[in-house]
């Protein structure tokens, strides 16, 4: 049987290329290693099973991000959050509080701000592209981005040094 191709790439190549993006989206959304693993697998499983036609790699990447976010939402809806006393310390991903690294602060934000800030600053998407991925209006994305920045500023220390 012929292998499925996605924009000229095999499934393995797609996984290898976008594993960090999809993994980061899942981790950012769920902040739990085990749960993120499930959603990560489900995202690529859907890609393989549905095999949609993509126009280009950007389309493929946006599709993966969108599906990953939806998988996380579905997961959170089905599995109500609980705290396990046994493995909570190992499951929750912790980021070192380096001086200039804001990754830890991102996880202090609400999920709605987190994903917008992540897509904007980490994936370098533009506002209109984020609006398309999240299926929200551009104004909503701008508002979320502004409020996310403000919250990050408060978390990080409040005032710029210079």
């Amino acid at each position: 049987m012929d292998k499925v191709q996605f924009v000229g790439m095999s499934f393995e190549q797609v996984v290898d290329k976008y594993k960090n993006t999809v993994g980061a989206v899942c981790v950012m959304r769920l902040n739990n290693r085990y749960d993120a693993d499930d959603c990560f697998q489900n995202t690529f499983f859907k890609l393989y099973k549905k095999s949609p036609d993509f126009n280009d790699e950007e389309h493929l990447k946006a599709w993966l991000i969108r599906v990953a976010i939806n998988e996380c939402k579905t997961f959170m809806r089905k599995n109500r959050p609980y705290i396990s006393l046994d493995d909570s310390s190992t499951a929750v991903i912790s980021f070192p509080q380096e001086k200039c690294d804001m990754s830890w602060a991102l996880f202090e934000l609400d999920a709605k701000y987190r994903e917008v800030v992540y897509l904007y600053y980490c994936e370098n998407y533009k506002v209109n592209e984020i609006a398309q991925i999240l299926k929200k209006s551009q104004n909503t994305v701008k508002t979320l981005l502004r409020r996310g920045r403000e919250k990050l500023k408060v978390l990080y220390g409040g005032v710029d040094d210079e």
Partner: peptide, 21 residues
């Protein structure tokens, strides 16, 4: 956001995902 950008996905995740095919 380098920590998040360079988040290392465990190899087990990748292997499981590739095993889907």
């Amino acid at each position: 956001f380098n920590s998040l950008k360079n988040l290392q996905i465990p190899d087990a995740w990748t292997k499981k995902a590739i095993a889907i095919s």
